[in-house]
Design a protein around this nucleic acid. Structure first.
Lengths: 348, 348
DNA sequence: TGGGAAATGGAAACCGTTTTCCATCCCGAC
DNA sequence: GTCGGGATGGAAAACGGTTTCCATTTCCCA
């Protein structure tokens, strides 16, 4: 004979569908049909009684039990490098706003771009049987696919392996856009602070920078690329190195707005004014970019829209519609941190 | 006779503990005992076989089934007004970093301070049977407690009803701290931009501001409080109103750093320099505060630590330890946006 | 009046775990 | 020789829903 399993004493048992059924004088089957809007017909009288009983008992369905049976959890896992980064905060907000109406909940994981952490979280999400994944700003290679068993729908944000659907911007174009803006203002000595070496986003922007310079016929000797990371750490030293060059650049690209703001400050501390002495362009257009002084000229990346689009693509995948790559447009927002090159000034 | 339920065709069935048991030549009970590190002894031989079978089959336990039985989901719901706000992003990061090691996952909900949205999410979290809740920056009254049935452990961040455990800072003290700093610099006409009227955080800071002024013997007529909200919207108009006063304030408190940065900009646009003409103090010390020019003098609120502490308190609650109120210290960070009052300048 | 279809409702299996009872077996102690 | 007890392992009952089969009615139309 099996055992009478004692309920864990800690949490009091809440009303189950059987309780509702009993109170309504119907079978659990009927109660379920009413409460989960099944297609099976139920008499008006039965429906009313079940609804009344559910209300009276404060019935809250147990999604775990339902999910166990239906194999759907209505939960999606979201992997981002770091929510503290305003760009990813925007992405996350878009994800959540799109997931809510679809009655899906978001399980958040910060990977810090650490593959071990990524895999650890991936496993946790698999154990929870999430319906799908949105992965932003991380690599997702063979090892990761092995964990998901390849069966789990995944949408990448930014860039991922070709086999996975992806929502992104054209970062090569974005890099070129920023660079051409500076070229049009007369700048020729334009430095580029690149993001971390592992980031394809950063690499693409650098590629766009190089391409724009070449197309404008700027000598290759003018190309200056320094690795800076996506955070302001180390920015003053990098700026100092740039200012020490002979001749020094008159404009520069920062890997994102956060770093751009730090660059403006570092230049300020070195006695250079923006944009009179040096022009600075950022990427992302985070909320604060338009409030700082000088307001940042930047290439806007639609973080919020990327998040939304990713969830919509994932929803499509879950509904059986295939998803490909979605490329959203970037846009140059000219504000105050760039200006026409004044030959009499400049860093030199 | 009952029905043979056909498995949903969409998702392929992954290996279950029964598959593992069969392959290892043991019963599901034994397999479970090995895989979930139960106290029940299992022979070394059996253990090895189960582990090998699990590895071979790529077994990933189904947490839904486990949770259904144990009544614990190892998931916590997190309700914040808006992740795009850097302050809440910091809180969230702290929450997640503290939850991870405890093997708990975080379900994120953005409430936008909308009670309807809050209740909607609350219900969704109840359906998912989260183990507990962390609620930041929202009210949590009778109606909300009714949804959770009062049985769900809840930790508030910031401020909540007295009956709930809470992790917060002393915002009255923080407001007084900022104000006293300005008083010490010689300012007497200090304006206060308050946060939204519904926010107790905002109200407390205003109270601290008033208290500090009174204690310094500043005439009540010098008190100026304008409602500004926690976002930069409308800031230029408010600043214009302030500048139009006669005499005009020589210093001001912003409800948070984001607004403070917008205030600095608005002053700049009106031809006033910070701090030479007007001193500005913010709250929170968001990451960007130290990178803008001028670097913001601000009262640091330990967002990350608040998040961590909330999860730790919740963990304690779940382990049966009662939790009270935790008050974390704020700290004045004097940077560049405040300076000694120069009688010859000022707004007047 | 008969018959097919639609409406209505219940019994029970099933999802994948965990855990409680036993049932053995084996060991040393008395 | 038997008895207490620890080690080991299995059967089966939960957890709380959903859904598949039926089993009845009821209804409409020929």
């Amino acid at each position: 004979m099996g055992a009478r399993l004692r309920a864990a004493p800690r949490r009091r048992r809440s009303a189950t569908i059987r309780d509702v059924a009993r109170r309504a004088g119907v079978s659990p089957a009927t109660a379920s049909r009413v409460l989960s809007a099944s297609r099976h017909p139920v008499s008006e009288r039965g429906r009313r009684r079940v609804l009344a009983a559910a209300r009276r008992l404060g019935y809250i369905p147990n999604l775990l039990a339902r999910s166990l049976l239906t194999r759907e959890t209505a939960a999606i896992g979201v992997l981002v490098p770091d929510v503290s980064n305003p760009y990813y905060a925007g992405v996350l907000r878009g994800i959540e706003d799109a997931a809510g109406p679809a009655r899906r909940t978001v399980i958040l994981c910060n990977t810090d771009r650490d593959p071990a952490k990524l895999r650890w979280y991936l496993r946790a999400l698999m154990e929870r049987r999430v319906d799908g994944l949105v992965v932003a700003g991380g690599s997702f290679g063979r090892a990761e696919s092995a964990i998901t068993g390849g069966a789990l729908p995944v949408v990448m944000i930014g860039r991922g392996p070709a086999r996975l659907p992806c929502v992104r911007v054209d970062n090569v174009a974005a890099g070129a856009l920023a660079t051409r803006h500076l070229l049009e203002l007369g700048h020729r000595r334009i430095a580029c602070l690149a993001g971390p070496a592992v980031s394809t986003t950063a690499a693409d922007r650098v590629a766009g920078y190089r391409r724009a310079l070449r197309e404008a016929g700027v000598p290759a000797a003018h190309e200056v690329v320094l690795e800076a990371g996506f955070t302001p750490a180390g920015v003053p030293a990098l700026v100092a190195r740039l200012l020490a060059r002979e001749p020094a650049p008159t404009a520069l690209l920062a890997p994102n707005d956060l770093v751009a703001i730090a660059v403006v400050r570092a230049l300020h501390e070195q006695g250079r004014r923006v944009p009179e002495d040096v022009s600075v362009v950022g990427f992302d257009d985070i909320p604060v970019a338009s409030y700082v002084v000088p307001a940042l000229t930047t290439v806007a990346v639609p973080a919020y829209a990327l998040g939304r689009a990713a969830v919509e693509a994932l929803g499509g995948l879950l509904a059986g519609r295939p998803a490909g790559t979605v490329v959203l447009p970037t846009e140059l927002r000219v504000r105050e941190s760039t200006s026409v090159l004044d030959e009499r000034r400049g860093l030199a």
